[in-house]
Amino acid sequence: MIEVKGLIKQYGNHRAVDNLNFTIGENLVFGFLGPNGAGKSTTMNMITGCLSPTDGEVLINGHSMFDEPDEAKKYIGYLPEIPPVYEDMTPFEYLKFVGEAKKIPKLQMKEKIESVMEETSIEEMRNRLIKNLSKGYRQRVGIAQAILGEPPIIILDEPTVGLDPGQIIEIRELIKKLRKKHTVILSSHILSEISAVCDHIMIISNGKLVAMDTAENLVGSNDKEKHLAIEIKGDREKAFSVLSDIDGLYDIKNQDSGNAVFSAKFVSENDPREQIFYRCSENFLPIISMNIKKSSLEEIFLSLVAGDTVNKENEKDSNDTADSDKKDGEN
């Protein structure tokens, strides 16, 4: 449905989006995740035709966004980061303008506007000027604009920013409703939001695609190294020496100076938990609790983004070293 090929956006010497390639299928809720300034909004603006790329191609249902924009834009509804609403219009007038621009037939216009106003719960505000509406309602008007005309793809750029918790839950419910009929692409730097509503997650950092998979697979893929938490009743030092002798268990740390509470790591192929049980039993050290800590999406995100930053820094360092070597050579 959406194919992005070699997308690049260069601002002077800064490369905001660096060779992005991905494909998004039908009827999915797709999360676009990344820290501030990672290039999420720039990518979304390029996918929707609001911004021209330096290089690359975006195909929407086979139509190029840059060669056949009119055809490609028919399939997309977009809510930018700041809702593009005219403050001197009422929501009804605004949606009528958007409907006319989207070439919705006149006979269906009223019905379609009523339907999106109902979906986004803005009927009560229909005749108020948008400048008198709260941020939450403006956001809803923006979403109504995006879903008007039922485009198969809906792209929402940080739709819950600046909303109160109640409004955030309502917007999430709305996104869940939208998934029944549309492909939804949602950008955010809030992980809980992405994990609450998205089927697939794409992580972008420094303009590059770092990971793209389902939330479960992402968590799983990073889970080769397991974290174990063990609480043992008895002498702390004795327990530590027992654990230290177990094959495959490493990075053992005492978490609490008073009790024998340890954290340790092991590789998933070499599970030492049975061995721990027998060895503790042999040494009369009752195990109170033993469990594997699952990495959260937050940890995955941080490790991927941090990894990318480290790579970038290493690259920079090696370049600097190469430069200084070169200079030394010249001297």
Partner: peptide, 14 residues
């Protein structure tokens, strides 16, 4: 200034 320019670009109008 109002960021509504984006709306004009994303609507099917050249």
């Amino acid at each position: 200034k109002q960021k509504t320019e984006q709306l004009l670009f994303l609507l099917p109008m050249d």
